Structures are given as structure tokens and as C-alpha cells.
Simulated scan of single mutants.
Amino acid sequence: MALIDHLDHLVLTCVDAEATKHFYTEVLQMELETFGAGRMAFRFGNQKINLHVRGSEFEPKAHLPVPGALDLCFIATVPLNDVIAHLKKVGWPIIEGPVERTGATQKIRSVYLRDPDLNLIEISEPMK
């Protein structure tokens, strides 16, 4: 039996909280959650991304928290063609794709974009 079951949350360090909030809530359509002493998080499914602003991180934190160091892959709730149409509608550029990749459990079809801190964001659909 494995020790770890699933990811609960991860922490993203950003430069501009408002630009990051716009990207994750408007472009990726995640739900904004506020908690604690004015902290922000972006909820999707049973997971969330907690937000730290560079220079004002909460303790404890990563040893070297830096904006733009993440490479994240999300599985979409809608067909990838709908994701592509939404990204075009909101004017967010796709930097690569659609392309076929190997996901955690099966082959996936993906597009790549960057968030405001230049983290690499992959949005995918499972291939049949």
C-alpha cells in the first residue's frame, strides 16, 4: 500500500496577486477562496492552490519560493476543444498544442500556456 493517497493543495508564489487572481479565476475558472488572515486560494475539484506573494510569504514556506518555477498539468472538466475556444475568447495565448502526452494514468491531449508569473500550465483531456 502506498503512503500517499492524493494531493490536497500546493502553494504558488506570485509577484502580482491581482494578476494571478484574474488568471486562475477568470482564465482557468477556478473558485476563489479566502481564509485565515486574508489569504487567497484557488479551488478546483477536491484540491486547491494557496497563494503567497513574493516577499510576504506565510510560514512555514518553501526554502526558495520563487515565482515562475512551477510546471503544472490540469485535467479539464470539458473537452479540450472547449478549453481552446475559451482561451481564445478571453485572449489568453496558447504556446503549444494540442499535443499528445503521457499523463499519470493514461495518454492525454494537452495545450500549454503561461500564467502571469510564467509558470507553465498544461491543460489536458484524457484520450480515449
Rank of each mutant, 00 (worst) to 15 (best):
residue 2 A to V: 12
residue 2 A to L: 13
residue 3 L to A: 14
residue 5 D to P: 10
residue 6 H to T: 13
residue 6 H to W: 12
residue 6 H to Q: 06
residue 6 H to C: 05
residue 7 L to E: 12
residue 8 D to F: 06
residue 8 D to C: 06
residue 8 D to V: 07
residue 9 H to D: 04
residue 9 H to M: 13
residue 9 H to R: 09
residue 10 L to W: 14
residue 11 V to W: 00
residue 11 V to I: 07
residue 12 L to C: 11
residue 13 T to K: 01
residue 13 T to N: 01
residue 14 C to K: 03
residue 15 V to F: 04
residue 15 V to Y: 09
residue 16 D to W: 08
residue 17 A to T: 10
residue 18 E to D: 13
residue 19 A to Q: 08
residue 20 T to M: 04
residue 22 H to L: 03
residue 23 F to T: 07
residue 24 Y to M: 04
residue 25 T to M: 07
residue 25 T to D: 11
residue 26 E to N: 10
residue 27 V to K: 11
residue 27 V to P: 06
residue 28 L to K: 02
residue 28 L to V: 07
residue 29 Q to W: 15
residue 31 E to F: 04
residue 31 E to Y: 07
residue 31 E to N: 13
residue 31 E to R: 02
residue 33 E to D: 15
residue 35 F to Y: 11
residue 35 F to L: 06
residue 36 G to R: 00
residue 36 G to M: 09
residue 38 G to D: 15
residue 38 G to F: 13
residue 38 G to K: 06
residue 39 R to S: 09
residue 39 R to H: 06
residue 40 M to A: 10
residue 41 A to I: 08
residue 41 A to F: 05
residue 41 A to V: 10
residue 42 F to Y: 12
residue 42 F to T: 01
residue 43 R to E: 08
residue 44 F to Y: 12
residue 44 F to N: 10
residue 45 G to Q: 11
residue 45 G to F: 13
residue 46 N to A: 14
residue 46 N to E: 14
residue 46 N to Y: 04
residue 47 Q to T: 10
residue 48 K to V: 09
residue 48 K to I: 01
residue 49 I to Y: 02
residue 49 I to M: 03
residue 50 N to R: 08
residue 51 L to A: 07
residue 53 V to F: 11
residue 53 V to D: 07
residue 54 R to I: 12
residue 54 R to A: 15
residue 55 G to S: 00
residue 57 E to Y: 07
residue 58 F to Q: 15
residue 58 F to L: 11
residue 58 F to V: 12
residue 58 F to P: 09
residue 60 P to W: 00
residue 61 K to C: 15
residue 61 K to F: 08
residue 61 K to V: 12
residue 62 A to P: 08
residue 62 A to T: 00
residue 64 L to N: 09
residue 66 V to P: 01
residue 68 G to Q: 00
residue 68 G to I: 01
residue 68 G to L: 04
residue 69 A to M: 09
residue 69 A to T: 13
residue 70 L to M: 08
residue 70 L to R: 01
residue 70 L to N: 10
residue 71 D to N: 14
residue 71 D to Y: 11
residue 73 C to K: 07
residue 74 F to L: 11
residue 74 F to M: 05
residue 75 I to A: 08
residue 76 A to I: 02
residue 76 A to V: 03
residue 76 A to M: 03
residue 76 A to T: 09
residue 76 A to Q: 06
residue 77 T to H: 07
residue 78 V to Q: 06
residue 79 P to W: 01
residue 80 L to G: 00
residue 80 L to R: 02
residue 81 N to G: 14
residue 82 D to I: 04
residue 82 D to K: 04
residue 83 V to M: 05
residue 83 V to L: 11
residue 83 V to N: 00
residue 84 I to F: 05
residue 84 I to A: 03
residue 85 A to Y: 07
residue 85 A to T: 10
residue 85 A to H: 06
residue 86 H to N: 00
residue 87 L to C: 10
residue 87 L to M: 05
residue 87 L to D: 11
residue 87 L to R: 00
residue 87 L to F: 15
residue 88 K to W: 04
residue 89 K to Y: 01
residue 90 V to C: 14
residue 90 V to G: 02
residue 91 G to A: 03
residue 93 P to G: 01
residue 93 P to C: 03
residue 94 I to Y: 00
residue 94 I to E: 00
